[in-house]
Amino acid sequence: MIVVKTGGRVIKNNLQNLIKSLSKVNEKFVLVHGGGDLVTEYSMKLGVEPKFVTSPEGIRSRYTSKEELDVFIMVMSWINKRIVTGLVNLGRNPIGITGADGKMVIAQRKKRIVIINERGKKMIIEGGFTGKIKEVDSVKINSLLEHFDSVVMSPLAVDVEEGSMLNVDGDQMAYALSTSLKAEYLILLTDVEGVKLNDTVLKEISTTKSKEIVNQIGPGMNRKVLMGLEAVENGVKKVVISSGIIEDPISNALSENGTVIRNG
């Protein structure tokens, strides 16, 4: 079983090729899809101004207000059903859900977050409707995989204490699912060929040599690598970071073209 995470740029620019590629996978899979570019586009059409914040580590992310959460849910549902329908048309038997369905992914809302303001200073603001994943119900997800050959999941979780849906980071959700389900592969599809160092794609990153590498990578990719390293240390056989904007991205990743993270 494999877990695949694809970012919003892949969804926007290469969705049909992604669906065709997924349809050819010979085993069961869970797909976590993003869609941030489309959320931004529809937020602006609906008069909800998108807001982004930068963490002290330099990571830029969406600030999810109550109004934008509504748009986020709407757009993610639309993307989810487009993928499900595409897979059905190609002979697969998928189910499309969010992590909130059946409390399969439980998160805790971030009450406060630290950001860097326009003057370059740290400040604390209200956390909005983003969350940190606390629990994955692998029993329920495995039960779904007994009846369906694939699960397509939007990056939404539920805060059971507050009774609200939350926007959660797609990479974080993919990591949590892959470790909980003990996936053979975690595939992270991006708009680049893999992890680059000095303009060269790294073919492999091992846990024993990771420390000398992670500090030399930009903050966005750095975070994917750190999650990948945690994944292989927690039962995932291999993590592959590779391009999602080519004709057959899944076969490409399973052929280990890109950057492979492995234990050892």
Rank of each mutant, 00 (worst) to 15 (best):
A100H: 05
V4S: 08
E193N: 15
K134F: 01
D169V: 00
V240D: 03
G163Y: 09
E41G: 10
E230D: 15
I250Y: 07
M165Y: 15
K12W: 02
S206M: 00
D159T: 15
F72N: 03
E233W: 02
V10I: 10
I261H: 04
G244L: 07
V53F: 01
L156E: 09
I187W: 06
V30Q: 04
G127K: 01
V151P: 05
V158W: 10
I115F: 11
R9L: 12
V3S: 04
V75W: 04
I187A: 07
I241P: 02
E184S: 10
G163A: 11
I125T: 06
E256P: 12
H147G: 11
V48F: 08
G194K: 08
D137V: 07
T208N: 14
G7N: 09
L186H: 03
M173C: 09
K132W: 11
D149S: 12
H147R: 11
T54E: 14
L166T: 00
Y185G: 08
E204I: 14
S77T: 13
M173L: 15
A183H: 00
V225T: 10
I2M: 11
V88L: 15
L202I: 15
K103A: 13
I141D: 00
S178L: 01
E126I: 05
G264S: 12
A231P: 05
V195N: 01
K20C: 13
K51I: 14
N222G: 14
N89Y: 11
L22I: 01
V160K: 12
Y63E: 05
D101G: 06
V4R: 03
E67Y: 09
F148H: 12
L15P: 01
E247L: 11
F129T: 02
S23N: 08
A176Y: 05
G228E: 03
N117V: 09
F129S: 03
V25L: 10
V152T: 09
I116W: 09
M227G: 01
K122S: 13
R119A: 14
G127E: 05
P50L: 02
T190S: 15
G244R: 05
M1Q: 08
N17H: 12
P56F: 06
D70N: 13
S61N: 10
T98G: 12
R223F: 12
I246F: 10
G194P: 11
E41S: 09
G131E: 11
T130C: 07
Q172T: 12
G170Q: 02
K224M: 05
M165C: 09
I106N: 02
E247Y: 08
A183R: 00
E162Q: 15
I245K: 14
S65K: 03
S77I: 03
T6N: 08
R262G: 01
L22D: 03
V25E: 03
S210R: 07
F129W: 11
D70R: 10
N17A: 09
S21C: 06
M1F: 07
G228C: 01
K238G: 06
G244E: 09
K51S: 15
V192P: 10
N257A: 09
V152D: 05
E67W: 07
E162R: 14
L38M: 15
K224L: 10
I79M: 03
L197Y: 10
V192N: 06
E193V: 05
K51N: 13
K196H: 11
T259D: 06
T207Y: 12
Y175P: 06
I19Y: 08
Q16G: 13
K209V: 10
S77G: 14
I97P: 01
E230H: 04
I115C: 10
V105T: 06
N198P: 00
W78F: 10
V151D: 00
